[in-house]
Amino acid sequence: MVKKLAVLDVNKCIGCMECMFACTRRVGRAGFDKSAIRVRSAGGIERGFVVVVCRACEYPPCAKVCPTDALRVRKGGGVILNKDKCIGCGFCAQACIMGAIFWDDELDKPIVCKYCGDCADYCVHNAIGLVDV
């Protein structure tokens, strides 16, 4: 079954950033510079947190604006990035109103969620999780 990542209950998010660390840890790094998920306060911590993550759109705007077909629409929603085709124009990031396309400054290419669920494995409060598409 095709999965996607979902924000299950944002009120359970404590802002620990373990999801962000988990995402970059996939590539052997400690930090956030390869993370496809981001948690920030909703304008001051008292208002809680916002979890910014790819919603795996059925008709993804990011793919629609990609001039080189580097972003392919995944079956069931979301996109798959073909880095070889990507020219780093950044249109995808502009098209995503969720702000869920992050930028890899080293490669000058987008960071796109792979829906692997590593981040959710480390969310001990179950604010995020993988769900069936």
């Binding site: 404590i14 620990c16 950033m17 373990e18 809680g48 001990v124 409060h125």
Partner: peptide, 13 residues
Amino acid sequence: LSRRISCSHCPVG
């Protein structure tokens, strides 16, 4: 109590 939060990289909150 209205919210529990955490330091960076700590799951306790």
